[in-house]
Design a protein around this nucleic acid. Structure first.
Lengths: 192, 192
DNA sequence: GTCTATAAAAGGATAGAC
DNA sequence: GTCTATCCTTTTATAGAC
């Protein structure tokens, strides 16, 4: 029929966008295909024209989310300026991120979820994580022997603290945790 | 009938033990009540003599798991010795923990899972997390103004790195991450 | 490619016998 | 308190019309 040639791709992107938002906020297993499709203004029957299973959707949605996340949208080339990393920490470790007032980073929001899923999903996670670590590592221009280790530790503090903050029952403790990680993280950046 | 008076409690503990293991390794939503009960050598019908819902089981199992975890079994009183915390890091950030060759810490294995569940579960998580931070804080005897912040940052590195390591697809990257966090974490302990 | 309709299975929860 | 049997809802996945 006379469909625009990008029609399928647009539908697919709507599905991925829908899945990304829903999976991040409630977890993969608590979101049904019907819900993903409805949120993308489609009916659930047509899901299988795009993906062969829910697991495949997860892997694809994860890659899609990783591209859209704040970290991956950062410039690939930048000045020798430690403040870039400090600004990333500032934004990432903000309570707004915990509350999803900014687009959530799937590395954090789905970290445990992914561990329980199949290889394709974990591969998507790994690739996205490696890009984050590479970015941090590039920013640590003043470091010596511990540069790589600091990059990994900072990534763990970022992902860990936001994940924990999301699980805690009160906002105050969450914010203390985020602030502490900003402080200690920044300390790691600037000390040689 | 002539049941031993601790019969119900023993069954309950078997259910909690069973749930703890299964939830930690595969996540709350992927484990059915029938599976939990079968693993506890019971049939699923009798589940509701012990818990009113699966959510209630989760909260109770979490408290139970927290008590059994390595951290909570540590002595409450200890010498002024920084090495205690270093030893905890050594054990917690071991690949054996990732592979569940030691009893997994639910703070790590269920961190994202918990964030998507109801208040009772998050309360249990928060209490357990606060105990961990209090323990770390107590160990940091050489610190000054940043003592509290360091304790929080170390907790985020512990929980974060093991969670990430579980999600990654290859062992080598996971081990680099764990080693880096041991190193940087130990550095935070010893520097004033 | 998307729709409606439906199959088929899984899982949470309850009823009643012992 | 635990068992077997069953209800009922949700959910993944497929079939066939347009």
């Amino acid at each position: 029929m006379a469909w625009p040639r990008d029609h399928k791709e647009k539908s697919r992107n709507r599905i991925l966008e829908s899945a990304m938002v829903l999976f991040s906020s409630r977890g993969f297993n608590k979101v049904s295909i019907e819900e993903v499709m409805r949120n993308a203004d489609l009916t659930h029957g047509s899901f299988y024209s795009h993906f062969k299973s829910k697991q495949e959707l997860y892997a694809e949605a994860f890659k899609f989310a990783a591209k859209k996340s704040a970290v991956d949208k950062l410039p690939k080339n930048f000045e020798k300026d430690d403040r870039v990393l400090e600004k990333v920490l500032e934004k990432y470790l903000d309570f707004k991120h915990v509350k999803q007032d900014i687009t959530p980073c799937p590395l954090t929001f789905l970290v445990t979820d992914v561990a329980n899923e199949e290889a394709g999903v974990r591969k998507a996670y790994t690739q996205s994580y490696n890009r984050l670590v590479a970015f941090i590592n590039k920013q640590l221009t003043n470091e010596g022997a511990l540069r790589k280790e600091k990059a990994l530790a900072i990534s763990a503090m970022m992902i860990g603290s936001v994940a924990i903050a999301r699980a805690l029952e009160n906002k105050k403790t969450s914010e203390s945790l985020l602030e502490a990680c900003k402080l200690i993280g920044t300390g790691l950046i600037n000390k040689k």
